[in-house]
Amino acid sequence: MRESWLSRNLRHHLTAWTCGALVIVVMVIFLAPFVWMIAYSVYPSTALQAGVPDLSLTNITLDSYGQLFSDPMFLGPIVNSVIVGLSTTVMCMAAGAACAYAIARFRFRGRQPLLLSMMTVQAIPVIVLAVPLFILLRSVGLYDQLLGLIVTYTAFILPLVIWMLVSFFEEIPPSLERAARIDGCNRLQIMYKIAFPLAAPGMAATAILAFITSWSDFFLAKVLTSNTAVTLPVKTAAFQGLFAMDYTSAATAGVITAIPVLVLTLVAQKWIIRGLTEGAVKG
């Protein structure tokens, strides 16, 4: 009896240790590449490219950060990316939440085809749309304008946003809304006083996804901007010149590009995890 308890305890500990080790391995694989890029941004590349990388702390310098942040050619794209990312997210959430709510709550003809065509839009390869999009935006004066990028991203990201939000709203028990209705709330009030707050975690998770998608885009930004509306990823990729591969600047720009998304996800991680737990995925 006692022996069996021991062995079970041992097995339990063994499992715990194995799992702990596995978690550490997984985390190293997840984090190491990014840490290495951070290293590239603070060490001179000669120190890292030597046979044995010289990682002595005295070698660390923040020069490349100083350089980039004092360069107006780099500050512009940062501001642009922030504006575009936030505006796109707001627009996606405003239009997307309304649309998703209607799909989740109202029975009308064309509801299924609507969801289906949302999926179709998701399936379009962006590449083929570049030239016509360029023509379209230029003809309405939105080429190389932040607004042009914002509406384009909104159109591309909306379907996924709607898709996710529909399942969040469907998770809310209709009985709550019926109760509010009896209390005299109208449809609009029910929506923003009952449904939206209840779906808040899910909406936060969706919003982050929208932000990350628009913040990260490279191809559309490359084609639809030229000067005033250039975004961070385009600027970052530009450090890979034909005659001027600047690994330190590229890595620094990479870190700077990744940081806001990181901070945002870290701040909102509770919401993201809760949101995903409570909604989207129960489809």
């Binding site: 360029f134 023509i135 450090f239 890979q240 010149g241």
Partner: peptide, 26 residues
Amino acid sequence: ASYQQGNFNDLHDKMATMFAAQDASF
């Protein structure tokens, strides 16, 4: 009015798009 520099590897796509749209930005 403007002198803009792009990464050589990105220029081809950008120029091809502008030309295809008969754009006169540059």
